[in-house]
Amino acid sequence: MLGGMLLIVLGYCIAGLIGGAIPGGSGGRAPQQGIRIYVEDNGIHTGIVLPKHAAGQSFDDLVRAGDLADPRYAGHGWLSIGWGERAFYLGTPTWADVSPTTILAAATGSDAVVLHVGHLPEPKGEPGVYPVTLSPDQYRRLVLAIRASFVQGPTVHGYGPSDAFYPARGRYSAVQTCNAWTGAVLRAAGVPMGAWTPFPVTVTSWL
């Protein structure tokens, strides 16, 4: 049985790396000038970091200062947004918090999904952060794709005073991971990206 489980895990990892290497969508060459966003990677979750106001777009109607443990952090000009399974996301801020039970519960599928939203200054030059330049049209498409994941409902304070969790649309599974969501919204914006990006490296290897 143990051997069978190891083969399943190995097969999943190989399939994920192959899916991440196959080009997906209609991404083209990045513009030389435009709107700068970032993709962040903490080794478990990837997410999108974008300015609060650009190309006539914002999240002001969805993300509010009162959702934070300390509303003063809403004065920062950037948002970090990621999607994932509620229990896994809330309970695993670092690798030290990951347990086999949490991984198995998330991988088998869950409709309890959230968006993790943090308020922060521009993360330029920070480790684990990858800059991406978008045209105004690409930026609007990105915002539209991200906004489509929000649903109405109660928020939960995040890991600290500057972030919160919001109810989200979708179903988490071993196929549709937090990193697959990041890849999907980037593809929707026209950013060159793999067809299936279940792991952080399958997202960041394109950047």
Rank of each mutant, 00 (worst) to 15 (best):
A87P: 07
H119T: 09
G91W: 02
P131N: 01
Y130M: 07
D97T: 10
E122M: 12
P123G: 09
T108A: 12
G109T: 08
G91N: 05
E122G: 07
D111N: 11
A107Q: 00
V98Y: 02
A96N: 13
P100N: 08
D97G: 04
V113L: 03
V114L: 14
E85D: 15
T102G: 11
Y89K: 03
T92L: 03
T92P: 06
W95H: 11
P123Q: 13
A112S: 14
L120Q: 13
E85N: 08
V117G: 03
T92Y: 00
Y89I: 03
S99N: 05
V114Y: 06
S99R: 10
F88V: 12
A106M: 15
T108L: 15
A107W: 06
A106D: 02
P93V: 06
E126N: 12
H116V: 05
E122D: 10
G118I: 08
L90C: 10
G128S: 13
Y89Q: 06
A96C: 04
A105F: 05
A87K: 09
T102A: 06
E126K: 15
P100L: 08
V98G: 00
V129Y: 02
P131E: 07
A107P: 02
L120M: 15
T101C: 02
H119P: 04
E85M: 05
A96V: 14
P93T: 07
G84S: 13
T102D: 01
P123Y: 07
V129S: 01
S99Q: 07
F88H: 09
V113P: 00
S99E: 02
A106K: 08
T102I: 14
A87S: 12
E122Y: 02
P123E: 10
V117C: 07
G118Y: 04
P123N: 12
A105E: 12
L120P: 04
G128H: 09
A106V: 01
S99L: 01
H119E: 05
H119K: 15
P93G: 03
A107Y: 00
V132F: 06
V113K: 01
A105D: 10
P93I: 07
